[in-house]
Nucleic acid binder design. Structure first.
Lengths: 348, 348
DNA sequence: GTGAAAGCGCTAACAA
DNA sequence: TTGTTAGCGCTTTCAC
């Protein structure tokens, strides 16, 4: 019946092994400076008793938690219609697991939750935080800075190019470069009236992709750019607007795969062939979206899982253990930008 | 520079408010039995010092953690190609937040991770666990039972109909009833050669949906049933096999929306009209999949977010506080089954 | 190399 | 109603 009686303590293990609590503690924490035969005896006692260290007691004295928070701040429903976050989470989880850290998930729905998250982070319950999906006017970064928790951002925060202050740590993909590659590919296909449906322009990823488009198409008709929001519905609306305005468009670079999906529906509905009449490229390479749409989507791939892994690695990378590096010098500054690759499928 | 100096303790607040630690503790934990003026004074001191209770110290004495683990055991890549889990997570998160609990996310990749998860749960780091995605031969339930952690399962575990023992707590949707509704709808459309592409039959949800199909189509050609795995790729393969075997099929009930998505591609590729030649119904109503496919998918909706919310509610519902009810009587037994609704769109 | 002892910050009897 | 006190289980000096 698995009585929920109190689990064995260090004390119990010590008694069983015939040593002191201190020795057991040493063995449990790597066994440095303990003679081999003793180590062996303690290990056996641990095994026999099924001893598991009490994390609360340990944290109380070490002030470490071996836990980090993942904050996903996305008020809209979008978050979960998009496999993007799930993939990042997976990467983060793998890395944390490998380093014996736990993942505390903090989901926020709008402003009301910000205070809660800030309080939690400031409360020193975790050793660090991984923060996603910031919008330009988001108060969260400020709150986090105040909380003084080591933090790595997913995606470049908008204030990262600021003045002299050491920038925040972040991991991003090369949105601008990826966008350029996509548009150049369309140019290479001989397309001349290349449109762009943007993402939500209060996020740096959307701005960077737009900039990449402009790098190549600088002199194009501004009417070829339609603002949208990274969703399939938004993609549809934008595509309609675009076709009404410029029926002669012969290529589209969509801010992400979901947007492309919406655009494809409208193109089909209007009887336009892809890529015959309009070539289409997305961004993300999120499966099954990209692979399963019709036609399969040419898109710019970012290694989302690797981004997650990297964020975790960066957060835990403090030279003298978690926290140390940050406390004295402030964040190690700057960001890591991962490359993107153009994946050719049928749509362009 | 937000020095990472030690945060204020109960002691400090007590000193500032001119009361004892015990009084501060009482106020912080609801203020019962403390006279109003004192409460006020303590509150102010807490405010001024920015005091946040040290959770580790608290857990050490209360043996509670105000944290629960969410275990997602899904070896395949499928997990994250499917918005299903994300939605459940969101529901869980909302409910936990409302009850001041934290969510510790445990993702497992195959068997290797089971031991790790079991150890963590047995370690008493959390007050309970929410467990998803069990497969028939999964060792996790056994390990969890041994660990003695209060647990609620997402989806009916296969061993729940067993003998006399009180069953495990679980939340599921009415897979069988939903399947029946779907197939009956197809019958109502005048279809007679109604096929079914199953999900992964090592999961009860897939088995239940198949049973629902059989409830209505008991006497149909067994050749109309093809086994698959809940993925778009699997759906494609199954649809091809089906068409080769029974080219006269006039309706399809797919085990989930992703499967339907794959099947739709094959139908289109073979020049068959949906719903003209073949009517198609999915299961889940997961957006954007169902809404954005072509044609928009008629499907059986389950309220995924509500399932998550309910799981959390159930887990935290112990009469004498978390744990208590479980410790003496074992799990309160049985499951909660949520209704499903048929959502009519264009595909059937 | 090993043990003894002093807390980490909090809650929960128990006294007052 | 409020304060005093004794630990919760662990790590970590400091002696030995």
């Amino acid at each position: 019946m698995t009585e929920a009686v109190s689990r064995p303590t260090l004390e119990a293990v010590a008694a069983r092994a015939g040593v002191s609590r201190a020795t057991v503690s040493r063995v449990v924490n790597g066994g440095n400076g303990v003679r081999e035969p003793l180590v062996e005896r303690v290990r056996r006692a641990v095994e026999e008793l099924g001893y598991v260290p009490n994390q609360a007691a340990r944290s109380l004295v070490t002030k470490r938690h071996d836990a980090i928070a993942v904050v996903i701040a996305e008020p809209e429903a979008r978050v979960f219609a998009d496999p993007f976050f799930a993939l990042q989470l997976r990467g983060i989880s793998k890395e944390l697991t490998a380093r014996d850290n736990q993942l505390v998930l903090l989901l926020t729905e709008g402003r009301a939750d910000h205070a809660r998250v800030a309080r939690y982070l400031a409360g020193g319950h975790v050793d660090g935080a991984l923060v996603f999906s910031l919008h330009l006017d988001d108060p969260l970064p400020g709150l986090i800075r105040t909380a003084g928790v080591p933090t790595v951002f997913g995606g470049r925060p908008d204030w990262s190019d600021g003045g002299g202050a050491p920038g925040p740590l972040y991991v991003d993909s090369d949105n601008r470069g990826g966008a350029r590659a996509a548009v150049r590919h369309l140019v290479g296909l001989g397309r001349t009236r290349i449109a762009h449906i943007t993402g939500a322009l209060d996020q740096t990823s959307a701005v960077d992709r737009l900039d990449g488009y402009r790098d190549v198409m600088g002199d194009a008709d501004p009417g070829l750019v339609v603002e949208s929001d990274f969703t399939p519905g938004g993609g549809e609306r934008a595509m309609r607007e675009l076709l009404d305005r410029r029926p002669d468009v012969d290529a589209l670079f969509a801010a992400n795969d979901l947007t492309a999906l919406g655009a494809l529906r409208v193109l089909r509905e209007r009887g336009l062939r892809v890529p015959g009449d309009v070539a289409v490229i997305g961004f993300d390479d999120v499966l099954p979206v990209a692979e399963e749409c019709d036609p399969p989507l040419t898109t710019v791939r970012q290694d989302i899982e690797e981004m997650g892994r990297l964020m975790a690695r960066l957060l835990l990378a403090g030279p003298a253990g978690p926290g140390a590096a940050w406390d004295r010098t402030g964040p190690p500054a700057a960001g890591v930008v991962l490359p993107t690759t153009l994946i050719r499928r049928a749509s362009a």
